[in-house]
Every structure is written in structure tokens, then in C-alpha cells.
Design a protein around this nucleic acid. Structure first.
Lengths: 348, 348
DNA sequence: CCGGCGTGGTAATACGTATTAGCAATGGTG
DNA sequence: CACCATTGCTAATACGTATTACCACGCCGG
């Protein structure tokens, strides 16, 4: 269509201003070291030429020559489509974007990473990590082997969510699920509950472990503190189990399970929290329609995103020595699903 | 902390395989032209060395040397924070992301662009457009001067939303507001409405013009087809006006205005659509709480995002000659706010 | 023995910027 | 006047890859 008009380079500016390319570069970078001096009038000539041509440095060449790019990579482990988990990740991205804007960085979403065996891979034939100065990792489960390799290669990164060591400590910004779940347990105990059940999703993700550990640690005072795997589909069986065991409160790791359980209870003429208290352990990972306000806690997702960028910046410039690991407190949510232990039907 | 272990380059591979750097590059790019030949065993040696070291080409150097990057830039005009318009743009981004994933491109969000006079600028001192092969422009109003410059520079881009020419035709993927509004008008006429009012946001954006033109074109059959500027704050004054003029149906360009208007009507004991029909002309640009299902239409935002990437790909490789401009149909939404012309209080 | 041809590879260079060593000119000092 | 310090700038090179012109070699036909 149009013959591409060769783009303006420093050489062009140099010619216009009657100086060398090196001088242009020096002016551009405002270098004022002891051994680099530019006469004010020369500087002006160069700046004028730049203004005239509307020149802007090629960021690619810049990156090749120097070290940094002011680009932060974002790698999302869960395949984005057509999964509804998109909504869960959105708040993280908002936080990341906000902070990136504040520190003047662009954001590179690694949408090109191929999916192998149902999960995205960071490392593959044509991996483009180096486009960014560093990278933020998002996802419920992150492959330990890939973290290993990131550590080995000395590539700056930060995980959103706590991660176990992988060939060295993993920098992360996570949510303090342990404390949050612990507080919920104490809340239940204070209300008089003595028989608790933890409904686990049965994954080995760190986030699951942390929640469960928090439960176990805080529930020592209970008469009975059980746990069992649970999914939304099994709601009826779970309900049977709870009633049989005389549990008066359930802690649902998965939001959808809590919703299904309440619905099952209602079908049988039981009420929440009248007959059964139901606590949720975080925001829904997939959209679940419900008009019930569950008692539980909120994951500080935006703040996690923001701080992830902050930590990544530290890792990149190596300024902050020491461990870059943060756990942020979750906000307790007072809903309508925690009551006193009711006269549960199946209680002995 | 760790002494950065110099990254693996083609030279390293070359040394390992006992060939030259050029050969490595040729193997990597699977070159099989007539005048480029590599013996199969040599090729194997190189590939083995690559596999051993886990080498991956530096995308930055690659971009500098060749032409393309497989990166699509995304420029959002409206400042992202703390504006709630984020939710409005999210669907576009989902579509963009989905299609980018399909064609194996990464996405670069230009979050670093500075805000001047309340709006983001593409062109500034340190503009980083060249990082991407091309760019998608999002935003209600896009500066014509900047489009001019993009055209002049021959930089590949696509606008989401129709745009007037700016030193040449502007490639875009827009929504066909004209037709959609026209259909709504016809719907209202078919229901028996004869006195219409268009509530405009009073902006000069193309999207506003298109809606209004659609209204004017379709409303010729009406007895009275007025229009007036309107904001959510003025709801009461607008209501007075509608009643005074005997309008039985209002077309609200701004969703929030429609919500406010219905609320104002209810406060006065009027019902929608009993006493007044109320049509909306697109999705809310900021979150507005309402449990009313408005009649109106839906902007195909995800699809617009997808097709924007498709068009951009065309523009970049110049394959598609001719105009790259598309208008996508909007989906009519049958809500509860269009009724027959009621016995409006103020009607004469 | 020479010319021509197909094969397999390499050397050189370009891409646009950042950085550093060092040169030329000037002025000041003993 | 010899010497040095300072100032202002440039030449050269590095960054890592892609591309192209060209070279060396062996082989064949005449």
C-alpha cells in the first residue's frame, strides 16, 4: 500500500544536528556523568531535531543494547478460554495493571504459550520470556519443575499465591489463608459449635494446604474436627454425612460446594444457619449464582496484584536483599450463614 | 545475589555443534530455500545441541533483525483507574485475548502511556509502539490527530468502534449502532408510539453520532421525534420535559440515565413501561445497579475484540487489500421496559 | 585439464541503541 | 614552554539474530 517510510533513527537525528549518533544517545538519556559532557547548545540542537522529527527511540534496539525494557510479563497458568475462571483472575490483573501504570511499565500477557496436557507451559520451543524484564505467575497450580528452571536461569519472577520452595525459595505474594480459616474456626467455636467438618477440594495446591492447616491448628479445641473431600455434585451425600456425624458447621473450601449444600439442605426442609452453619473459604473461582450472603472471607486479590508488581520490581533490580515473600491478610465477611449450633436433625 | 549466568546464544550452540552461528539460525528457522541447504546430519547435530541447552531465541534480537514480533499492542484510551469503565472494556479484552491466543500472539498492554489533560496519549517522548507489530485502539473517544499520525507513519492499527477518516480511512471493527437504534425505533412505532424523545449524552464521539443518525433516519414516520441532552443527575427535569411534551417513549444513550429516569418515575408513582417506555442503547459503560431488565440491545463486545485482532493481522501482513472496516450487528434485547403508549399523565 | 554445476556451509553485514576509551582543543600553572 | 586538567565530543564496539553474497569442494562430461 504505502511504501514504508524508513523510520527515523538516531543517525538521522545526528545528521540533522551535525553531531554523532553517540551524542544523540547521550542527550536522550540525559547522561551527566563526570566523564560525559555535552555543551548546552549542542544539547539544544539535538533536542530540537528530535522535536522536529517526532523521533522516539526504538524500544527493541534499546532493550538489546541495554538491560531493561520496562515490560512486565504476566503468565496465566489456567487456559483462559472458555473457562469462567477468567472472572476470578480479573481482580488480580486489575491490581497488576494499576501498579504497572504507576511505575510506568507496560504489561505483556503471554497468550502465545501453548497448552500441553491441559496446562500452559512457560518453557517451550519458542519461549518469549526474555521480552519482559520479569514475570508474574498466576494460577491455582504452578508446575514446580518450571519454577525450578526459572530459579536456575536466574529469571526474575513472582508468584501470586504462596508456593513451596523449588530449587530455592520462590518469591510470592500470597493470601494468609491459614489465619483466615483459623479465625473462622474460632468464630464458630465462640458461637458454641463443637463438631466441625472441613469440606476439601482434594487438591494438593499450596492454597489448599494452607487452608487446611489453618483449620487443623485452630480446631484443636473442638470435640470433633473432621475433614472429607467434597464436590458440588455430592451435595446430598455430604449432607447425609454431616447429619449423621452431628456436625453443626461445615467449612467449604470450594464456594460452589457451599452453594450446592445449602440448596440441598433447603430441599430437605433444613435451614442455613438454623440447622447447619456454612462457611466459605474464599471467593468463588467460577461464577456461582446465589443470593445468599455467605459468611467467610475475601481474598485481597487486587492488593495481591499490586504488591506482586512491587515485589517483582524489587527482584528485578535486586535492590531488596532477602526474601521476597509476603502473605496478605484476608478480610472476614460477616454473612448470614453462621449461627448458633442448631437442633440438627440427625444429632444424637 | 546470583551472578547472572550469561544466557545461551546461537554462538554457544554453534560452538557445541561445530558449525557457524549462521547455520544455527538457518536450522532454527527451518529454511529450505533453493539456495540454502543444510545436510540432515548437521541439522541433527544443531538440534541436539539446542535440546541439550534448552536454548530459545531471544525475541528482542529477533525482532531487531527481522521484521515481526508476534506481539499485538493494546492501547486503552480511557485512563484505567480508578474508573469503573474497566468493566465495560473487559469483554473487548476477552475477545482480543481469545483470538490472540488462537493466532499465537502475545498481548502488550500499553499501561505506561502517560495521561495528559485527562487522556492518554499514544505519542509521547518515549513511545513504545514499535514493541508491537501493530496495535488495537480502545476507547470512546480517540484523538483524530493521533490517528492521523498513525496513518502517516504507516503503523498498523485497528480501532475498536467506527472512526471517521483521519488522513485516510481508519481501519476499524465497530458495532452497527445505526441499525440497532433504527430497529428499536421501529419496534416502538409498531407498538403504537408516536411521540419519541432521544436522550443524548452530548458527546461528539462517532458512536454517539451513529446512534443518533439511526434514530433520526428511522423516526421519520413519528409524529414527533425530539432529542435533548440528558444526564442521570437531571432525571427529574427530563421526566418533566417528557411528560410536558407527551413523549411516550424515551431512547437513552446512556444506561445510567435510563436507570435514574425509571427511578424518578417510580418516585412519582409512574410505572415503566405502563406510563413511559424506556429503551437503552447499549451496555452500561459504568456499573449501574438495577434489577430492571431494560429493552434495548447488546454490543457484541467479545466478537468485536476477536475481529479486531483478525483485521489487525490483515493490516500487518498487508495480505488483505482494500478497506478493513467492519460493522457488526447488535443483538436486540427484549426486556420489560417497552410497552404500549400508556395514558401518560401529562398527555394532552 | 578445463569449465560447469550442484552441495553445504561460512563470512560479513544489517538492525538501532548504549557505552566506553580516547582524541583534539583549550586554558591554566609552575 | 612544557605539562597537565578540563571540556566536548566521536569512533568503535557490543547486544543476538537474520540474511545474503560468496567460497570450497567434489564430480562429471568433454
Amino acid at each position: 500500500m504505502t511504501a514504508t517510510p524508513r523510520r527515523v533513527t538516531q543517525r538521522d537525528i545526528a545528521r540533522l544536528a551535525g553531531v554523532s549518533q553517540a551524542t544523540v544517545s547521550l542527550v536522550l538519556n540525559n547522561r551527566a556523568d563526570a566523564d560525559v559532557r555535552i555543551a548546552p547548545e549542542t544539547r539544544d540542537r539535538v533536542l530540537r531535531a528530535i522535536a522536529e522529527t517526532g523521533y522516539a527511540a526504538d524500544p527493541v534496539a534499546r532493550r538489546l543494547a541495554s538491560r531493561f525494557n520496562r515490560i512486565i510479563g504476566v503468565f496465566t497458568y489456567e487456559p483462559a478460554f472458555p473457562s469462567g475462571s477468567r472472572d476470578f483472575f480479573h481482580p488480580f490483573l486489575l491490581g497488576i495493571e494499576e501498579y504497572a501504570e504507576r511505575v510506568g511499565c507496560d504489561l505483556l500477557l503471554f497468550t502465545s504459550a501453548p497448552v500441553v496436557d491441559g496446562r500452559r507451559r512457560i518453557f517451550h520451543q519458542d519461549n518469549r520470556l526474555r521480552l519482559a524484564d520479569g514475570c508474574i505467575l498466576l494460577g491455582r497450580e504452578i508446575d514446580g519443575a518450571e519454577l525450578h528452571r526459572l530459579n536456575r536461569d536466574g529469571y526474575p519472577y513472582v508468584a501470586v499465591g504462596r508456593r513451596d520452595d523449588a530449587g530455592g525459595p520462590v518469591p510470592y505474594v500470597g493470601a494468609d489463608y491459614g489465619s483466615a480459616v483459623g479465625q473462622l474456626v474460632e468464630l464458630a467455636l465462640a458461637r458454641g459449635h463443637r463438631r466441625l467438618t472441613y469440606l476439601s477440594m482434594g487438591t494438593t495446591a499450596e492454597s489448599s494446604q494452607d487452608r487446611h492447616r489453618g483449620y487443623v491448628a485452630a480446631a484443636t479445641a473442638a470435640e470433633s474436627a473432621r475433614h472429607r473431600p467434597a464436590t458440588a455434585e455430592d451435595a446430598d451425600a455430604i449432607l447425609d454425612d454431616l447429619l449423621a456425624e452431628g456436625s453443626t458447621v461445615a467449612f467449604a473450601e470450594d464456594f460452589a460446594t457451599a452453594v450446592a449444600l445449602e440448596r440441598a439442605a433447603r430441599r430437605r426442609g433444613l435451614t442455613v444457619p438454623g440447622d447447619l452453619s456454612l462457611l466459605t473459604l474464599g471467593d468463588p473461582t467460577v461464577p456461582v449464582p446465589t443470593d445468599l450472603a455467605f459468611t467467610g472471607f475475601r481474598i485481597p486479590r487486587e492488593e495481591m496484584g499490586r504488591q506482586a508488581v512491587e515485589v517483582l520490581a524489587n527482584v528485578i533490580d535486586g535492590s531488596a536483599s532477602g526474601l521476597q515473600q509476603r502473605l496478605l491478610p484476608c478480610e472476614l465477611v460477616e454473612g448470614d450463614t453462621l449461627g448458633a449450633p442448631g437442633p440438627a436433625v440427625g444429632r444424637r
